[in-house]
Simulated assay, not measured.
Amino acid sequence: MDLIQTLALALLQGLTEFLPISSSAHLILLPVLLGWEDQGLAFDVAVHVGTLLAVVAYFRVELRRMLGDWLGSLAGGGQTADSRLAWAVGFGTIPVGLAGLLFADAIELHLRSPLVIATTTVLFGLLLWWSDRGGARRRNEYSLNWRDVLVIGCAQALALIPGTSRSGITMTAALMLGLSREGAARFSFLLSIPVILLAGGFETHELFQQAGPVDWRALGVGTLVSAVSAYLCIHFFLKLVARIGLTPFVIYRLLLGAYLFWVFA
């Protein structure tokens, strides 16, 4: 990989992992549209590590409280708002983990085409717009009950389909349940931590089964760029989402879907 490809893909991963526009779709489409060779599994692992470092660093204070209170609840110390949120993140990850075990191979084989991405980009973009327009937006992430967690967790499992957007579908479900835009985004970002760990672990396992040279410069640059861009993306998205809403991202998804239909249909 040359430096331009490394920077472009790492920046793309860092930005799109947390915006409701689908990182998997963009990482599939950019090499196809520009005629680049596949970046390889090692690079995918590196940029996933970068985005994981970003979200953990951004929510480090909340995560410290959540982990401490969660451990306290295991020791019989009772539940707190932070321990309940930690349990919600854990249980909300189960559906996507099960779906990945059952359907990952079929999705990889049949659902990575540009036309599938175009369809999901448009459909789930419209669903995001509908939920943002109609949601009550009165609750925060600490108000989630187990029914809410189940709904959001099952919605997250749909993000295995390229073009859906993990952050987009979880925010859509949270908004439908009455969470504010900030609350929906914050829970979506917290929920990304175990998902990125699972995806990175799976990719690392696959990587160890492959033989070949490793471009350590590309991996280092990819990790750094994806981490910095993801951190900035989280920061500015949470600052702006209450004011600008999600309509700009819906418009982007519709334009991208229309372009893909035009090019590949």
Rank of each mutant, 00 (worst) to 15 (best):
D2G: 05
I4S: 12
A8F: 14
E17W: 01
P20T: 11
H26M: 06
L29M: 09
E37K: 14
E37Q: 14
D38C: 13
A42W: 09
F43M: 08
D44G: 15
D44P: 12
V49Y: 00
F59T: 11
V61G: 14
R64A: 13
A75C: 08
G78M: 07
T80S: 14
T80I: 11
T80E: 04
S83K: 14
R84D: 01
L85W: 00
A86K: 11
I94K: 12
I94P: 00
L98G: 13
A99L: 14
L101Y: 05
F103N: 00
A106Y: 12
E108L: 12
E108W: 10
H110F: 13
L115S: 06
A118C: 06
T119L: 03
T119F: 08
W129H: 11
D132I: 04
R138Y: 06
R139K: 11
R139H: 12
D148R: 02
D148T: 02
V151I: 15
C154L: 15
Q156C: 04
Q156I: 05
Q156M: 15
A159C: 00
L160I: 02
P162G: 07
M171T: 07
A174Q: 14
L175F: 10
G178N: 09
A185G: 12
F187P: 08
S192W: 00
I193F: 03
L198S: 10
F202C: 11
E203F: 01
T204K: 05
H205N: 02
Q210Y: 03
P213R: 03
D215L: 08
R217M: 11
L219I: 06
S226P: 10
S226V: 06
A227K: 02
Y231G: 01
I234Y: 01
H235L: 14
L238Y: 03
K239A: 13
K239V: 10
A242D: 09
R243C: 00
P248Q: 10
F249I: 01
I251G: 00
R253K: 07
A258W: 13
F261E: 13
A265G: 04
